[in-house]
Amino acid sequence: MADTRYIRAINKALADAMDADASVVLMGEDIADAGGSFKATRGLLDRFGPARVRDTPISEGAIVGAAVGAALGGLKPVVEIMFMDFVTLAMDALVNQAAKSRFMFGGQASVPMVVRLPHGGGLNAGPQHSQCLEAWFAHIPGLKVLCPATVEDAYSLLRAAIDDPDPVVFVENKALYAMAGDLPEEPARASIGKARIARQGSDVTLVTYGATLFNCLKAADALASDGISAEVVDLRSLQPWDKETVLGSVARTHRAVVAHEAVRSFGVGAEIAAVIGEEGFDDLDAPVGRVGAPFMPVPFARSLESRFIPDAAAIQAAVVASLA
């Protein structure tokens, strides 16, 4: 289906997963009657009933904690946290319970659950409704972290996340929800941990994920007109991440810039840059560049926020710097 919106791909993935497996249940605030704040669950209550599409009170800690207990009890809960910022209230459940239960119980049981977390700015939603906190979760052994950029990946990776036996943090950029793209009738099954080369190039590797993919592609277009050929790697999965594809690309281009919307300091890009430095050092002709938001909370005013989110020009500038 051409022109499928990203949010519709999420909705279809949820519906198809629920059709395929009766143990899949949805939990979250206003997801049933209201269809979700961003309408990801629209129509699912009518289709699957209140026992499988469950409106919860505004109790993020207990929702995610209950999802862990439910997952240990034979269900596959998919939790929607309305904004990624609100997951701060569920950190014990995710970090101490979901991530560790299988490991600390000696592998007696897995915790098949997904927590969907809408992140990102661009909606002028301010400091507590716009953050990109994915690096926190990528730092926790036991969690998997996905962040699809395209419509097809939104569908395929969500299906993969729901099918996965371990807890998956599924990050969706709110600014992409209205984006239309192609969703094949039979989307390919995605495997977690595989990056995609979104654009081939020979002079520099841009490593990115989520909405920043599109700024990287835009930057690559602009660079092409200056005769610079940029390869763009869309990670899709942050934990685990596809080191092989990234290092393979850097081995061909000899330069790398990592770009994301999250704050640059201590971000996902820091890990990737460090690994490229450690394992790809001999391939590098320049230090690995990093592009990310500046070290401040996401500001509200349209004029402030638009400067806060790294744009194509910032990525372009980082590439030019690495070629200097």
Binding site: A66, V68, A71, A93, Q97
Partner: peptide, 8 residues
């Protein structure tokens, strides 16, 4: 909450 989820 774990027991809550188990009850669910």
């Amino acid at each position: 909450p774990l027991a809550l989820g188990s009850a669910l």
